[in-house]
Design a protein around this nucleic acid. Sequence first.
RNA 1: GCCAGUAUGGCGGAAUUGGUAGACGCGUUGGAUUCAAAAUCCAAUGGCUUUACGGUCGUGCCGGUUCGACUCCGGCUACUGGUACCA
Length: 799
Amino acid sequence: MEYNHKTVEAKWQKHWYENKRFSVTEDKSKKKYYSLVEFPYPSGAGMHVGHIRAYASLEIVSRKRRMEGYNVLFPIGFDAFGLPTENYAIKNNIHPRQVTDQNIKTFTNQLQRTGFSFDFDRVVDTTDEKYYRWTQWIFVQLFNKGLAFRDTTYVNYCPSCKVVLSNEDSQGGKCDRCETPVVQKEKDVWFLKITDYAERLLQGLKELDTLPRIRIEQENWIGKSTGAHVDFKVKDTDESLMVYTTRPDTLYGATFMVIAPEHKLLVKYHDRIKNMKDIHDYQDAAKLKTEFERVELQKDKTGVKIDGLVAINPVTNKEIPIFVADYVMIGYGTGAIMAVPGHDSRDYEFATKFGCDIVEVIKGGDIEKEAYTDTAEGELVNSDILNGLSVKEAKVTIAEYLEAQGIGKKATNYKMKDWAFNRQRYWGEPIPIVHCDKCGMVALDEKDLPLVLPEMEDFEPGEDGQSPLANVPEFVNTTCPTCGGPAKRETDTMPQWAGSSWYFLRYCDPHNNEELASLENLKYWMQVDWYNGGMEHVTRHVIYSRFWHQFLFDIGAVPTEEPYKKRTAQGMILGEDGDKMSKSKGNVVNPLEIIEEFGADTLRVFTLFIGDYEQSTPWNPSGVKGAKRFLDKLARLAEKVSDKPNDEYQTTLHKTIKAVDEDIENVKFNTAIAKLMSLVNELSKATHIFKEDYEKVLKLVNPFAPHITEELWESLGHTEDMVFASWPKYDPTKLVESTIEIVVSINGKVRDKISINIDMSKEEVLTLAKSTEKIQAQIAGKEIRKEIYVPKKLVNIVV
RNA sequence: GCCAGUAUGGCGGAAUUGGUAGACGCGUUGGAUUCAAAAUCCAAUGGCUUUACGGUCGUGCCGGUUCGACUCCGGCUACUGGUACCA
């Protein structure tokens, strides 16, 4: 019998959602479990099968946890501010609000058609003013603690989107969204001082249960390094030029210095510098270079020697030249370096081009040819007090020496930069700050939040990177909350990362109008027990949200320092052609089409069966029917159900219960399903199936295919639905077989198989093994040198 | 460049405290059922070789350890992701 997936699935979806089977309350009598998936950006294209797969993992876990007796919070929401919606709205002359509402409707429908057990009473929408009121509130707290500030910098600017981009949004010199080459533009922008939390963000990773590659990616992003600050006297001035170096032990090899084009030394001593015009020209040229060009041109070092200023190496006391070059960045360390060309390939290249001295200070290479950089270990030479020491010893000695002389001390640096927190577009949270001539920048009072986005007709961005909000005088012109005088509102909006940095907190108390979420609810639900999302969000989103969470912890708004206990990341489903799914390539698979033809259960099973969950894998359209056949077979087993127990398949059944349980916990959904398929194959060969056993099977399959299993469960006479039925346990005594088959090999090559009793001794097994016809033929006339018996596995005879 | 991951049949992928390589699924071939088809069921399915029994080769490449290596060690190659003048 084949079941009709359309009627069955519609029936159970109606039952679940109308009866709010997945809506939870803070029931303190039960253990809680909080499973979190990254909420989607509700694009106009709707979901693709990748979304289904991303959510399916914790959908399985959540349904399993419910059956295990947990009170499960499994929420969903929409990260709905953003450029695609705004661009679509402009193009089609519709308000982004309307577009967003429509897209959310589409997504919700798709999610429900797939049978996801989300708590739809807790849906959050970042563009809802009841939500972004609290996003703004958090910003105000950050601002009041000095963690939100404005600074003039050169920023990445996309001339097409007409927005300023963070470094993260403009990788490879191209706009993340539209691929237009990015240009540099001077602008006053908002920053969040995430660097203040760098060390804590790094330390907090120790507590996080995650794969090494996920942890390492975050560690690299934070980029901690340790070394020293060293002062280099500038000759004939009181000035010291401070550098940061991770290799103070190579100080004797520092034969010149390089400062970034933006370095303030150039301003302070401009009248002493004789070639100031050359330097100005160089600075101007550097400004024009985009990040992309800097990277592309990295092989060709450029720079200008400062004529009029000379530094002194503090340990050799030699005069060394100072250069300006854009391979030194103003934003990292002190914006100045000591160049050790003998042991740094960048410095080597620069020294060769500009004719600087190259001194070997660590033995082992040939600095005539190239920089010797394999210097994690080695022996110091040409280094006076360090001569003969190992690198390790030299680091200690020089550090003590520098401190004693007062010319340097240990220092730590982080690659991570402050978070550029702004966007010059309409469809984002307005930044709740007022600019007053008298009082400066003033945050809005809590009672004046939310600062609502004004209704507008025209969302075209202003010229010159201005936000469209600047075109609305009613919005811009206001009064100062402090002095009451005339003032102007900030017109930038927040970046997309804002709303997603705390949404998991709102789920704990989504309708609270007094605070972002009550401490009581947060204490019950937090931390998130398991958070699954994309590998691409491991650095930015996860770090940004951890930063906000640590800050909220510091001001007492949340009860835990870290938000997440465990983090996993799913692999992508690629198009049939092996490329990333994208509209432009035309290889997107629409889940609704699969649901129509094969059913939601089939789609769910197949997206998890297709490959290892944490690995990317191409979509295989013909494979879908395999999942469908499995479910049809499972349904057909109902015909064999009987009240009589059956011993035929007990070992397989209990082994499968154990394995499926473990596989789900270990994110091995593909093998869990494979083992269920094997079990169903075996059961379909059995003479009959004991009813209780069939129920166990249905429970195991239920998290993967909830509709059909509910239907079959009901057909067995159950009136309570399966959602809270108990998860099956295996019986350890049934895992052991009395008779097993083992392999007999000669010199490691399999020659025969024998059936043995589980408690036969080694001697008995070996005797039996040697007695078979095939083995006799193999060992006849040969000398047996060694006999190996691996209990329950194999016998190996060496001849 | 650096960091991480991956490499197994026609395809997606299983199997690592070293112990039957290819579970499970797709596809293919043959058969049953059918007026026929779809669906379903049964069987076979890594290469070469053999009528068959069997033999032999085989987990990206080269070498090593071991009774035994997809698994461990040394040396490469290719692809994917992240990151990048980070001092």
